[in-house]
Computed example of a mutant assay.
Amino acid sequence: MKWKSFLIGAAIGALGGYAATQIVSQKTKVSPEKVLEQVKKQFKQNGSISGSWIHMVAEPFEKQHIQYQVYKGGISKNQDGVNEQFEFVADALTGTLLEVNKITEDTQAS
């Protein structure tokens, strides 16, 4: 009877450990709203923001041969009376900015 109880306990422990590992290893995305909030906070350090947007669906992105799931968005700000626009790419898992590009007049005309 002792072996039977031991084996049942070991099996339950193994299943519980496996389930816990699966739950912990699941990568959860940061909400796009939270990412936009973080990006705006970083941009506000250098002036006021006049507008912002973020694409609500994460999409694949590759940078330096590394694959990411990312949110893309944009920020408009007024710097010394001049309206500047930026596009950004942020990691959907961490919210970390991977890329920021200033949109120039030439880029907007394309």
Results as ranks from 00 to 15, higher is better:
residue 48 S to H: 14
residue 34 K to I: 08
residue 14 A to E: 07
residue 49 I to N: 02
residue 34 K to N: 08
residue 41 K to T: 14
residue 25 S to V: 03
residue 26 Q to N: 13
residue 59 E to L: 10
residue 93 L to A: 08
residue 96 T to C: 00
residue 7 L to E: 03
residue 23 I to V: 07
residue 93 L to I: 02
residue 70 V to Y: 10
residue 72 K to Y: 01
residue 78 N to W: 07
residue 9 G to M: 07
residue 47 G to H: 13
residue 103 I to P: 02
residue 50 S to G: 05
residue 18 Y to K: 00
residue 77 K to P: 00
residue 45 Q to K: 13
residue 66 I to A: 05
residue 88 F to P: 04
residue 8 I to Y: 12
residue 91 D to V: 04
residue 102 K to R: 15
residue 69 Q to E: 15
residue 9 G to V: 04
residue 76 S to T: 07
residue 73 G to W: 12
residue 55 H to K: 13
residue 75 I to G: 02
residue 57 V to T: 15
residue 77 K to I: 00
residue 17 G to H: 06
residue 93 L to C: 00
residue 73 G to Y: 12
residue 60 P to A: 03
residue 102 K to M: 11
residue 14 A to F: 15
residue 50 S to T: 15
residue 3 W to I: 01
residue 62 E to F: 00
residue 10 A to K: 05
residue 110 S to R: 14
residue 60 P to R: 04
residue 79 Q to L: 13
residue 104 T to A: 01
residue 106 D to Y: 10
residue 53 W to K: 10
residue 81 G to I: 01
residue 66 I to K: 14
residue 15 L to N: 03
residue 17 G to L: 06
residue 21 T to L: 11
residue 99 E to M: 09
residue 103 I to W: 05
residue 10 A to E: 09
residue 16 G to T: 06
residue 67 Q to I: 02
residue 110 S to N: 12
residue 11 A to L: 14
residue 103 I to T: 11
residue 35 V to F: 12
residue 105 E to W: 09
residue 104 T to D: 11
residue 24 V to F: 14
residue 87 E to W: 10
residue 2 K to L: 15
residue 24 V to Y: 15
residue 81 G to H: 04
residue 108 Q to V: 03
residue 22 Q to G: 07
residue 63 K to N: 06
residue 41 K to F: 08
residue 81 G to M: 01
residue 67 Q to T: 06
residue 91 D to M: 03
residue 101 N to Q: 11
residue 87 E to A: 06
residue 11 A to E: 09
residue 26 Q to P: 11
residue 100 V to S: 04
residue 7 L to Y: 14
residue 86 F to H: 06
residue 106 D to I: 04
residue 46 N to Y: 15
residue 102 K to V: 05
residue 8 I to Q: 07
residue 86 F to T: 02
residue 75 I to V: 11
residue 30 V to Q: 13
residue 70 V to D: 06
residue 53 W to C: 01
residue 19 A to N: 01
residue 71 Y to W: 05
residue 55 H to L: 09
residue 48 S to C: 00
residue 30 V to I: 14
residue 91 D to C: 02
residue 90 A to L: 03
residue 84 E to Q: 13
residue 75 I to T: 05
residue 75 I to N: 03
residue 58 A to G: 08
residue 2 K to H: 14
residue 94 T to H: 08
residue 44 K to E: 15
residue 21 T to A: 13
residue 8 I to G: 03
residue 4 K to Q: 13
residue 20 A to G: 07
residue 66 I to R: 10
residue 30 V to P: 12
residue 88 F to C: 01
residue 46 N to M: 02
residue 72 K to G: 00
residue 19 A to P: 00
residue 102 K to N: 08
residue 77 K to S: 09
residue 40 K to V: 04
residue 21 T to Y: 15
residue 31 S to W: 09
